[in-house]
Measured scan of single mutants.
Amino acid sequence: HDTTVHINGLRIEVHGASEEILKWIEEAARRGVEAEEIKRWVEEALK
């Protein structure tokens, strides 16, 4: 999927993410993980 995830006011563009990654992002956000940190993880995961 190409999608934009909104976390604590930060937009994260996610290209080619699976449902699993999207669920993981939402879970991390709920746990209060910094949005910048999530963004870094997602970029690494999608390389």
Score class of each variant (00 low, 15 high):
30 R>A: 14
13 E>Y: 11
27 E>F: 08
36 E>V: 09
4 T>Q: 09
7 I>E: 03
34 E>A: 14
4 T>R: 04
44 E>P: 00
11 R>N: 11
4 T>F: 10
3 T>K: 11
10 L>W: 04
37 E>A: 09
25 I>A: 03
38 I>E: 00
40 R>V: 06
3 T>Q: 12
41 W>K: 04
10 L>D: 05
12 I>D: 01
35 A>E: 06
11 R>M: 14
33 V>F: 09
44 E>M: 14
34 E>W: 09
42 V>C: 02
35 A>N: 04
32 G>I: 02
24 W>H: 03
13 E>C: 15
25 I>M: 07
24 W>I: 02
15 H>K: 12
44 E>T: 10
16 G>D: 06
28 A>I: 04
12 I>T: 01
19 E>S: 11
4 T>H: 15
28 A>G: 01
23 K>W: 08
10 L>I: 14
38 I>F: 04
5 V>M: 09
27 E>D: 14
12 I>S: 01
41 W>V: 08
24 W>Y: 08
16 G>F: 07
23 K>H: 08
8 N>I: 05
47 K>I: 07
47 K>D: 06
23 K>Q: 09
26 E>D: 08
42 V>A: 03
45 A>G: 03
16 G>M: 07
35 A>K: 04
32 G>P: 01
14 V>R: 01
44 E>N: 12
42 V>I: 08
18 S>C: 03
44 E>F: 13
25 I>C: 02
44 E>K: 13
34 E>N: 13
3 T>G: 14
23 K>F: 07
28 A>Q: 07
11 R>Q: 12
13 E>F: 10
37 E>G: 03
28 A>H: 02
40 R>L: 07
19 E>R: 11
33 V>C: 06
18 S>F: 06
47 K>F: 09
43 E>F: 15
16 G>L: 07
34 E>L: 10
37 E>D: 10
13 E>L: 07
8 N>Y: 01
43 E>H: 11
10 L>C: 06
9 G>R: 02
9 G>W: 02
6 H>E: 15
17 A>C: 02
45 A>S: 06
6 H>R: 08
21 I>F: 06
29 A>Q: 12
14 V>Q: 01
27 E>I: 06
1 H>E: 11
41 W>M: 07
40 R>Y: 05
22 L>Q: 03
12 I>L: 06
18 S>L: 06
43 E>K: 09
9 G>A: 04
2 D>A: 15
47 K>H: 09
43 E>L: 14
42 V>K: 00
30 R>E: 11
44 E>C: 13
17 A>M: 07
19 E>W: 15
4 T>I: 15
31 R>C: 07
45 A>E: 05
21 I>M: 09
46 L>I: 10
16 G>A: 06
11 R>Y: 11
20 E>C: 09
7 I>S: 01
40 R>G: 03
21 I>Q: 03
22 L>R: 08
26 E>W: 15
5 V>I: 15
10 L>P: 01
39 K>V: 10
18 S>N: 10
13 E>K: 08
43 E>C: 13
7 I>A: 04
16 G>T: 05
12 I>C: 02
40 R>N: 06
39 K>G: 04
19 E>K: 12
15 H>C: 06
30 R>D: 07
45 A>Q: 13
10 L>K: 03
46 L>H: 02
43 E>R: 08
17 A>V: 09
40 R>F: 06
9 G>F: 02
23 K>A: 09
41 W>S: 02
34 E>Q: 12
10 L>H: 07
17 A>G: 07
43 E>D: 10
36 E>N: 09
42 V>G: 00
27 E>K: 05
14 V>H: 02
38 I>M: 04
28 A>W: 15
1 H>F: 12
43 E>Y: 15
47 K>G: 07
9 G>H: 04
14 V>G: 03
21 I>L: 10
11 R>V: 14
11 R>T: 14
23 K>E: 08
20 E>V: 10
9 G>N: 05
39 K>L: 13
44 E>S: 12
41 W>G: 01
6 H>Y: 11
32 G>N: 04
31 R>M: 13
